[in-house]
């Protein structure tokens, strides 16, 4: 067994864990109840999806799948900042 095959079999085993975690995050996002809760859940979900994307890139042995991760993470952060800004200030441009 080469290192790569080891990596792939381990990832194959842990993949369901990630999926279950996503579904749980999604349930929290669906249930709410307040907006910060939903945003927090989507935020955590996006960060984990970013990590999961890069791990799956090893599994599919295709490095071209990764650059989306950082973009997803940065926009999830921007969503946080925007909701925070909505609550804190009168005008968005201030």
């Amino acid at each position: 067994m080469t290192l790569e095959e080891i990596a792939r079999s381990v990832i194959m085993i842990i993949m369901p864990i990630f999926i279950v975690a996503f579904v749980l995050y999604a349930i929290r996002a669906i249930r709410g109840p307040t907006i910060p809760d939903i945003v927090l859940a989507i935020d955590a979900l996006s960060f984990d999806v970013a990590a999961f994307m890069i791990i799956l890139a090893i599994y599919f042995s295709s490095p071209f799948l990764i650059p989306g991760a950082i973009v997803l993470a940065v926009w999830a952060y921007a969503l946080d900042i925007f909701v925070a800004k909505y609550y804190e200030k009168k005008e968005i441009g201030e």
């Binding site: 307040t34 946080d80 909505y86 609550y87």
Partner: peptide, 30 residues
């Protein structure tokens, strides 16, 4: 790419949590 993303999340995640918490506390939504 994974290093840059890790660095990025390590910076962004706490800041996002902090910003949300502060806004939630100030606007008294939670």
């Amino acid at each position: 790419a994974s290093l840059v993303t890790a660095l990025f999340i390590a910076m962004a995640a706490p800041t996002g949590s902090h910003a949300l918490a502060r806004a939630a506390h100030r606007a008294k939504v939670v």
